[in-house]
Amino acid sequence: MEKIKVEICVGTTCFVLGASALQDIEMFLPEELKDKVEITGANCLGLCKNSHFGDAPFVRINESIIVSQATIDSVINEIKKLVK
């Protein structure tokens, strides 16, 4: 099975609004997900432009699913939905 691609935006806006706390998400992944997920940093997904910066930090999963106001919990929940 192809790995689930998780991109954490590390652009400055996302970082300031909370992505700094997403850096260690790998440590919080449940055992059964660890080898199914590939986590990378993304250099500004461009989602914070306009007045939507309030929804940062953003995480993108499999190029299509956007998690806004992302937390470690909400990202892991999205990943779980894909595995089921």
Binding site: G11, T12, T13, V16, C44
Partner: peptide, 17 residues
Amino acid sequence: YEELGALFAALEINLSE
């Protein structure tokens, strides 16, 4: 630092670029 981070974000300065 919090204010500095907000200043960069307000001006859409992305340090990584």
